[in-house]
């Protein structure tokens, strides 16, 4: 029964969505430096935000029971070298993860990788990869305030000592004083395994490749930039996030002025327990028309 309802939702969404986005989003050409993040830049006022309809991710469990983010407002500009996206969506609270059981607000854009091939919308498929830029409020906190230590996450916590950290200014043990951070991190399994989750997110945004659900892997040293701000609006609140990327990201997606590509979007409301597959997504690729340079 549930499957039938989902199928019906998906079909009606596709019919409706296709009509709405037949023309696609236009990436307007501007002359400003887009590698610098500026959420209030004047050019944003000249680009009409397009409304993108999202739906609770319906394909794989665990999935959300209802669509928490129905609308995502998107603006796109480029300057021939860089492309910038400005997102806006309603979210009544700012969620930056941290403690156990708390998740982060987030937004992601997905691009096809291979030219002239549109991969399956749900994060691609084997040999049909997608390229993703994933901004998280949690990563942004990293960028602004540094990697979140236990003391940052739990300001009132107290801990006698961690392994190899008992050397202090009064210690006479020269051996212990020489112990490096790397040696201490042997006891921090995420870090010692080299998991990108366990290190500071300097850019506030992750660049990833994926070949299907659950297969995303982070590309090191991304050139993308991101900045977000949550603001209260009456009883509601909203996120405004800018993600900027070079048009050509080697090893990822290559966009060119005057050409057409595709995008897909996803939004997570961390405060409502959304994480991973629990997200609101676009169900069809949204055409991206990149204006030629003037």
């Amino acid at each position: 029964m549930m499957k039938k309802i989902y199928a019906l939702m998906v079909v009606s969404y596709l019919l409706w969505g296709q009509g709405l986005w037949a023309e696609g989003l236009i990436a307007k050409y501007v002359k400003e430096d887009l590698s610098k993040l500026n959420l209030e830049a004047l050019f944003w006022k000249e680009v009409t935000p397009e409304t993108i309809q999202l739906i609770a991710q319906p394909m794989v469990a665990p999935r959300p029971q209802k669509t928490l983010t129905e609308k995502l407002w998107v603006q796109v500009v480029h300057n021939g070298e860089w492309m910038a996206f400005r997102f806006k969506w309603k979210d009544k609270e700012k969620s930056e993860a941290g403690p156990l059981g708390k998740f982060s607000d987030a937004v992601a854009i997905q691009f096809p990788v291979k030219e002239k091939e549109v991969p399956p919308i749900f994060m691609g498929a084997k040999d049909s990869p997608v390229h993703i830029l994933h901004w998280r409020a949690q990563y942004q906190k990293d960028k602004e305030k540094g990697f979140q230590t236990m003391k940052d996450i739990y300001p009132n916590m107290n801990m006698d000592m961690y392994p190899l950290e008992f050397a202090n200014q009064y210690s006479h043990d020269e051996m212990l004083k020489k112990i490096t951070e790397e040696q201490r991190e042997v006891f921090v399994s995420g870090k010692s395994a080299g998991n990108p989750q366990s290190f500071q997110k300097i850019k506030g945004v992750d660049e990833m490749m994926a070949e299907g659900f659950g297969s995303s892997s982070v590309i090191e040293n991304t050139r993308a930039e991101a900045q977000g701000i949550w603001q209260k609006k009456g009883k509601e609140g909203e996120w405004v996030v800018q993600i900027s990327r070079p048009l050509a990201l080697e090893g990822g997606s290559i966009l060119k002025a005057g050409q057409k590509s595709f995008m897909a979007f996803a939004v997570w409301q961390g405060g409502e327990g959304e994480v991973g597959c629990r997200k609101s997504v676009t169900m069809t690729w949204v055409p991206l028309i990149i204006e030629d340079k003037k």
Binding site: P62, A97, G98, P99, L100, G101, F103, T149, M150, I153, V188, S189, G190, K191, N195, Q197, S198, V275, G276, C277
Partner: peptide, 21 residues
Amino acid sequence: YQECVRACPYKKSMYNPYTRV
């Protein structure tokens, strides 16, 4: 994602907020 923490009925998967895994 802590899906394992949610799903394990015995609650023997645990989240490390420092390593975020």
